[in-house]
Design a protein around this nucleic acid. Sequence first.
DNA 1: GCGCAGTATCGAACATCGTTCTATGTTCTC
DNA 2: GAGAACATAGAACGATGTTCGATACTGCGC
Lengths: 237, 237
Amino acid sequence: MARPSSTTTTGRRRASHSMEAVLTEAVALLDEAGPSALTFRALAQRLGGGVASIYWYVASKEELLDRATDHVVGQVLVEVEALPESDDPIDDLRAMALTLFDAIVARPWLGAYFMRNTVVQGSSLRLYDRLGRQTLRLDLTAQQRFHAVSAVVGVVVGTAVDLGQEPPQEVLDGAVDRDEFLGRYAATWRELDVEEFPFVREIVDEFDGHDDLDQFRAALDLALAGLRLQAGARGDP
Amino acid sequence: MARPSSTTTTGRRRASHSMEAVLTEAVALLDEAGPSALTFRALAQRLGGGVASIYWYVASKEELLDRATDHVVGQVLVEVEALPESDDPIDDLRAMALTLFDAIVARPWLGAYFMRNTVVQGSSLRLYDRLGRQTLRLDLTAQQRFHAVSAVVGVVVGTAVDLGQEPPQEVLDGAVDRDEFLGRYAATWRELDVEEFPFVREIVDEFDGHDDLDQFRAALDLALAGLRLQAGARGDP
DNA sequence: GCGCAGTATCGAACATCGTTCTATGTTCTC
DNA sequence: GAGAACATAGAACGATGTTCGATACTGCGC
């Protein structure tokens, strides 16, 4: 039906794929040119095979996306598990979230796809558990723990989604870099009426050329400060 | 070229659309059957016209999505602006975020599309300004204000995205309701090894049948607690 | 050696989607 | 009434996900 175990095929004239190769090339396509570049035909060409062959490994594009996402989340999971454990669970939670965010910055398409089946199984569920495990070291109710991890994941995904917007062709081509891209919006915003858009005018300089990581870190730290408060903030016994 | 100003057309035999009708029907399609149901052909059929006619009002599907999103965000904006102002800016910010979240719960597809051009113009920018305006009443730096609103929007979007996952066909048909849907995952999770997934096992009862609004409110309150801390929490002068 | 089931591959065709082209009707203005 | 702008469509194009049927390769019993 599906899923080969080991393909020691010599692959003479015909193409021999293996699930690993399919996923690797799929991720490569996503990395190089974004989600719109991942088509069965493009993928088949990269694998040096036919279009329909891919369907032997994957039942649909949805499954391809799921597996490709899980493939890279697995790598993130390894990084997260390699993180040293300190005596402050919240610090550890912070480090994990930052690791996850870094991965999304490196692969913006991940932001949009990360929540696919998060809840279902595989590496995402494991990652979810690793995050939540830190809350077990805090003095909280089960519900508070559930909500705390939801909040952290929410901040990550929320920031990541807006980061994962498929950028206009200009910046993909490298014709326009990110700073100039931001600068254009900033310029528009500076034209707005102060009475009508007082806040936008207030923060336009902050927005112009801002660092996504700073933005994320600030949002994360707000939520974690709230969590620390909730956990009682009582130090060592 | 495009964009009619006022269409007082009588519309006898031929279909007469008007931008309003196009957007209304587009939103209706999204509401009824999710993003995958919004095709130019389905939309044309609903409007009683041809496919190509829609292109007189919008240049592309991207623009259709942008305008449809802005259309409903405009309604949210009205609700947000109708909110009474208290003497606590953070409470007001909270109320606004909850209003926004309610709108997304009612229209799950909004979660995924909300960030489209958020930053660009139209109702989304106005909404962004209304949210941020509350931070002007707090004792913060411009950067802190920028980050605070990013955090709040991040929490909203982050929670909303995972909510906006196009639900499986079963629940769209109404054959399976949300509680049962959650229950299935919960059942899978309960089978997991406690040693391997201690956190998932800890919160599975919380997850089963949980309320999205509670989850969101908890995440929001964590971030707002952090913000309150940052703002100094010094009451009236 | 032979057949045969399972494994693995692929070309061609299909339906659908966004989009474009071209033509036609409608309404307003002079 | 003629022409310009507005407004509407049908048909076709190219791309995409997907299915179908045919074909090859592999390991195994005999």
